[in-house]
Amino acid sequence: MNRSETGPVDGDRHHAGADGPSLSDPPSPRLGTRRRAVLECVQRAPEAVGVADVAALTHLHPNTARFHLDALAADELVARTVEPRTTRGRPRILYAATAEATAQRSYTLLAHMLAHVASSSGDGHSTPVTVGRSWGRTIVEHASDRGALSMDDAVDTLKQVFDEVGFQPEVQTHGTEVALMLRHCPFREVATVYPDVVCGLHLGMLQGALAELGGVAVAESLDPLVTPHLCIARVRSAAAA
C-alpha cells in the first residue's frame, strides 16, 4: 500500500486514546460561570422550569436569568416551550435542557486529522478520505487476536467505537445492508462549513475501522447532515459485493 494512503501507521502511527489523541474531548468550557450555572440548574430540574425558578435557584435577578436562558436557547442548549394554561393570564415560558447540551465533542481528534491532511497537502495521493482511513484503523482494537469476525460483530464493534467518539449511532438492519443513524456529529460546527473535508475524514474513518476489523463489512456511503442533527452511514456485507 502506498504510504501516502496509510497516514499515521507503522513508525509514526498515532494510537488514538493511548499515545495519541483521546477519542472525545472533556466537557466544553465555552460557557461563562453564570451561564454554566444556569444551564446546570435547568439540567438538574426534573421538569421544564421558568425564569423565576432559575433566578431563585441561581440567586440571579430574573432579567439576568432570562438573558442567559435565551442565550442558551439560541445555542440550542435549552428548548423553550409555552406552559399550557386553563385560566386567564399570560402563560409562562418554560425551559428544558436539550440533548445538545450534553453531547460530546471530539475536536482534539479532528485537529490531529486535519493536521495530517495539511502535512500531506503536497501529496497528490492524499485526500481527507485516505487520511480518515488511516485514523479509522487506529481507533479500533486490532482484530487479529479475536479470530474471524462476523458482519454483526464488526458492526457492533464499529457502533461502540463511534459511540465513544460521540456520533451517538443507532443501527438499523435492512437485509445485507446496515444503516448507522448518526444522531450527533462531534465535529458539527466545522462540518457544516467544510463538509467535503470533515465528512470525507468521517467516511474514511468508517472505511478504515471496518478494514481493521477484518473487512467482512464495507462502508458503502455516508449521507452527511440529512437533517441538522443526523448523518446516515450505509454499511454492507463484503460478501454481497
Score class of each variant (00 low, 15 high):
3 R>M: 10
4 S>F: 11
6 T>C: 08
6 T>R: 12
7 G>V: 08
13 R>K: 10
17 G>S: 10
17 G>K: 03
19 D>R: 15
20 G>D: 08
20 G>Y: 03
23 L>A: 05
23 L>F: 05
26 P>K: 06
26 P>N: 04
27 P>K: 01
30 R>Y: 07
31 L>E: 12
35 R>P: 02
35 R>L: 07
39 L>F: 08
42 V>P: 05
42 V>M: 10
45 A>K: 04
45 A>Y: 05
46 P>H: 11
48 A>Y: 01
48 A>R: 05
48 A>L: 07
52 A>W: 00
54 V>P: 05
57 L>W: 10
59 H>P: 00
63 N>D: 11
63 N>A: 11
64 T>F: 00
65 A>H: 02
66 R>N: 12
67 F>N: 10
71 A>T: 03
74 A>R: 14
75 D>C: 05
75 D>R: 15
81 T>R: 15
82 V>I: 09
84 P>K: 14
86 T>L: 09
89 G>F: 04
89 G>T: 07
90 R>P: 06
91 P>E: 09
92 R>E: 11
96 A>K: 09
99 A>S: 14
100 E>I: 00
102 T>K: 12
103 A>F: 00
103 A>Q: 00
107 Y>M: 11
108 T>E: 06
108 T>Y: 03
109 L>P: 01
109 L>A: 05
111 A>R: 14
111 A>F: 06
112 H>L: 06
113 M>E: 13
119 S>C: 04
119 S>A: 14
123 D>Q: 13
125 H>K: 09
127 T>I: 00
129 V>A: 11
129 V>P: 00
133 R>D: 04
133 R>P: 04
137 R>E: 10
139 I>W: 09
140 V>Q: 12
143 A>H: 13
144 S>H: 11
145 D>K: 11
148 A>L: 14
149 L>S: 13
151 M>P: 07
152 D>N: 09
153 D>M: 14
154 A>W: 05
157 T>R: 15
157 T>W: 11
159 K>I: 09
159 K>A: 15
166 G>K: 01
166 G>W: 01
167 F>C: 03
167 F>H: 08
170 E>F: 08
171 V>E: 13
173 T>R: 15
173 T>C: 12
175 G>E: 07
175 G>V: 04
175 G>S: 12
176 T>D: 15
177 E>Q: 13
178 V>P: 05
179 A>K: 15
180 L>I: 01
181 M>E: 13
183 R>A: 13
184 H>P: 00
189 E>W: 03
191 A>G: 03
193 V>I: 13
194 Y>N: 04
195 P>T: 01
195 P>F: 00
197 V>T: 10
203 L>V: 00
206 L>G: 12
207 Q>K: 10
212 E>K: 02
213 L>F: 13
216 V>I: 04
218 V>N: 09
218 V>P: 03
220 E>M: 02
224 P>M: 06
225 L>A: 12
226 V>M: 09
227 T>Y: 01
227 T>P: 05
231 C>F: 02
232 I>V: 15
236 R>Y: 02
237 S>F: 06
239 A>M: 11
240 A>Y: 10
241 A>I: 07
